[in-house]
Amino acid sequence: MNDVSLIVKVVAYILIVPVFIFGSYVILHGHLSPGGGFAGGAILATLVAMLVITFRDDFKENPHEIFSILECIGMIFFILLAFFGLSSSFFHNFLVNLNGLFGKPVHFGVNPGYLNTAGVIPLMNMAVGIEVFSALSLIVLMLSMRYGGERK
């Protein structure tokens, strides 16, 4: 296996923190600005793909079990949030306009954009973001590794 050059490694070290912060921003501000769970999860999975291509030879074990557990946690959290609104209907927004968690009331028109709004939508954004991030990085990890029969 050919080794990765020094330029790629240095650029990967520089890019880790900005890409992580941008992906987290896109997920957490999904109800205020363009983006959301799918786009933010894809950005974080791009970071994992970059790390896999750059530092593949430094891995001793393939860390795919962590991503498998995270994927199941995101999916279960998403379906559970949908079931919690079952008092009126499936996917009912049961936290909005209650002045509690994510419950600041919003009226029609221009406002500066408060983070503490939109009820259950930010929680669903986080769940879908975790699920998409771990599913896409699981696919990239499994496709990138060497086969057991190739080593002999």
Partner: peptide, 23 residues
């Protein structure tokens, strides 16, 4: 359509390029 633009840039230009290069 900025939502679609962000998703397209992340998946089309980032992830699929990485998978093609692995192949």
């Amino acid at each position: 359509a900025p939502d679609v633009a962000i998703a397209e840039a992340a998946i089309g230009a980032g992830l699929s390029t990485a998978i093609y290069i692995m192949a």
